[in-house]
């Protein structure tokens, strides 16, 4: 599983990364977590309000920080 956290490094992006790592740990999943900070890259995913969460090249969350439980659902159903 390849996970990307999209965001220029604001507080919300850090929180999203934290929440995502928690969810991964809870599910016992192995994944590479990559931070994408380049504006062009972020915009290319169609994200206009950071942060964004991309799982295997698919945008699953945009513009808000979800709860860890919600991320767990998203990752488990992926």
């Amino acid at each position: 599983m390849h996970i990307k956290i999209l965001g220029p490094g604001c507080a919300n992006c850090t929180r999203l990364e934290q929440v995502t790592r928690e969810a991964l740990d809870a599910l016992g999943l192995e994944a590479t977590v990559e931070k994408v900070t380049d504006d062009g890259e972020i915009a290319a995913y169609g994200i206009m309000r950071t942060p964004g969460l991309v799982v295997d090249e698919q945008v699953v969350v945009a513009g808000r920080v979800p709860t860890a439980a919600h991320v767990r659902e998203l990752l488990a159903s992926h």
């Binding site: 062009g40 698919q58 945008v59 808000r64």
Partner: peptide, 11 residues
């Protein structure tokens, strides 16, 4: 030159 790929999701 930025090409939007994928479907933008509406939060």
């Amino acid at each position: 030159e930025t090409h939007l790929r994928g479907q933008a999701i509406d939060p």
